[in-house]
């Protein structure tokens, strides 16, 4: 089911290595970051790259390297949380709807069709508009905009699995709905959902940074990649590195996650 680490192609090794290194660096940010990410140093604004400030400083004199390290933690940590919640909520609702059928299924279908008809960007802005910007609200908003896709995937898979002989046999021998869902349907979703999850972390990190960029997500002075890019955007003509470094920090892990997600989805498709 899961390929051996040694059998993986080189590109996956590289991606995994990069991700691992960045994860470690961000988790150990408190130890390895040269400066405090939020301390303002007015005497040292917009400093160029130097040994003391490897990525330079921003318009408030904060060390960009330190801010990037902390920002990975925040952006990808929150993205991970949203992705987990999305997958969990989506598959739970999708599987339940598929298994129960009838009215429950109809309701889920109508709700998901309705929310799919609104572009998810607009949908998130709408929700944040109601709740006000902030980290918790953006988590909720992205979750509400995304679960539908995974509910549909899970529903489709669950419908297929429900028609399998072993689910019918389990019903015949008196296993209840909960037993059937937990024993037979969820295991069938795992491979698909793991792939989706890998790809979802990357895209969620991107949209989270995007909404922070727009001022709808994480609020300053937290170090968050979208916020940092937004700050850098204003000074792009004179101090391009202020935007360059956080952008790079965002792109690299997302690209790695996409490569890995693609590989696994191909791998499992070829296995079936």
């Amino acid at each position: 089911m899961i390929p051996k680490l040694r059998a993986l192609p080189v590109r996956i090794h590289i991606c995994l290595g990069v991700l691992l290194a960045m994860a470690l660096a961000s988790l150990l940010a408190g130890v390895i970051a040269p400066h405090d990410p939020v301390t303002i140093d007015i005497k040292n604004t917009l400093a160029p790259m130097s040994w003391d400030y490897p990525f330079g400083t921003d318009q408030l004199g904060r060390c960009l390297l330190s801010r990037c390290l902390y920002a990975i933690r925040l952006t990808f940590g929150v993205a991970l949380l949203i992705a987990l919640l999305t997958i969990a909520v989506g598959s739970a609702i999708g599987v339940t709807a598929a298994y129960l059928g009838g009215l429950a299924d109809q309701i889920v279908r109508i709700v998901s069709d309705a929310s799919l008809s609104i572009p998810s960007m607009i949908f998130v802005i709408l929700i944040v508009g109601f709740l006000g910007p902030g980290t918790e609200n953006i988590i909720l908003a992205i979750l509400l905009a995304q679960w539908v896709w995974y509910a549909r995937v899970a529903r489709g898979l669950a419908l297929r699995i429900t028609s399998y002989g072993y689910v019918r046999a389990a019903k015949l021998s008196g296993t209840g709905p909960v037993g059937i869902i937990v024993w037979h349907i969820f295991p069938g979703l795992v491979t698909q959902m793991v792939t989706q999850f890998t790809l979802l972390i990357g895209s969620t990190a991107l949209s989270l940074a995007g909404f922070s960029f727009l001022g709808l997500g994480v609020q300053p002075p937290s170090a968050e990649l979208g916020l940092m890019i937004s700050d850098g955007c204003e000074l792009i003509q004179t101090h391009a590195w202020m935007m360059f470094w956080p952008s790079l920090t965002l792109i690299i892990p997302v690209a790695c996650l996409n490569v890995i997600g693609d590989y696994f989805s191909d791998y499992w498709r070829s296995k079936q």
């Binding site: 399998y164 002989g165 072993y166 019918r168 046999a169 389990a170 015949l172 024993w183 037979h184 295991p187």
Partner: peptide, 10 residues
């Protein structure tokens, strides 16, 4: 159940 092969979860 009818089908012995399909009635077991692989």
């Amino acid at each position: 159940p009818q089908d012995p092969m399909g009635s077991f979860d692989p």
